[in-house]
Design a binder for these strands. Structure first.
Lengths: 135, 135
DNA sequence: CCGAATCCTATGAGATACTG
DNA sequence: CAGTATCTCATAGGATTCGG
């Protein structure tokens, strides 16, 4: 018999995960989504379902190994759905699940931030490096 | 002599960085900020300046090597400022720069997402794994 | 207390070759 | 086309030791 209401349970669940704690599963999840390829794949899939080769072309320089690996992990975590059309040759499409779309906002912002603030970061680096070599 | 107006230049600069391209510096920047420790350090510093040991205690399980490394990179990229008080023993404080605070939003959301959606992800994993072992 | 330096191991990640 | 399987090399990251 439950001693908590459903609302209390939900509140509890919310507080139950703290990425600051090493053993907390949310720390591992954070580690998995804090990944260059994850960010790029998710933002690429924002436009709609895409085939393996389309994604591959979209993300210049990704090896098929990393792409496969990233897509598998995302599928297992429930962020991406995989649809196989058993034709010859096979056709495989990937698309964001509702859960996957729920992370789209933060991830897009991260990518946008990196692209928008490159000049400032580059300048900061030059300043830092100049200071270092002056020792 | 410039063939573009300042506004056009600004627009150009904005478009000039594309993380989808392998050689683009913004791809590397994205790679650096898409990091578990970066996310945790930045969110920890959101509360205000903190000493090395304070951050260390805040992020359970971080080795001092990773913390130092992360802080150095963030300092070089201009996201974090380092203040040394030459007492004995030395006191070192870290704080977010304005540039560092500008990324706080996206990063906080990422951490919050991981903590909030752990149950759904865990369930997705179980479903996935059950499907796999049924083969 | 804050960190640099070193050593060591596990994982990351590309290149290549092969299959349904 | 969409993978899987290996191989190889580089990097991540922990443990430990030492220094200002």
């Amino acid at each position: 018999m439950p001693t908590l209401t459903a609302a209390q349970r939900r509140q509890q669940d919310k507080m139950a995960f703290d990425a600051y704690l090493a053993e907390c599963p949310s720390r591992k999840l954070l580690d998995r989504i804090s990944d260059k390829w994850v960010v790029l794949v998710i933002t690429a899939l924002a436009d709609g379902p895409q085939r393996f080769s389309e994604i591959s072309r979209h993300l210049a320089g990704v090896s098929q190994k990393m792409l496969t690996q990233t897509l598998r992990t995302l599928e297992r975590d429930g962020l991406v759905a995989r649809h196989v059309t058993p034709s010859v040759p096979v056709r495989v499409d990937y698309e964001l699940t509702p859960l996957g779309r729920s992370i789209l906002g933060p991830i897009r912002q991260l990518k946008a931030w990196a692209e928008a603030h490159m000049p400032e970061v580059a300048e900061a680096q030059e300043t830092y490096d100049r200071r270092q070599e002056a020792r």
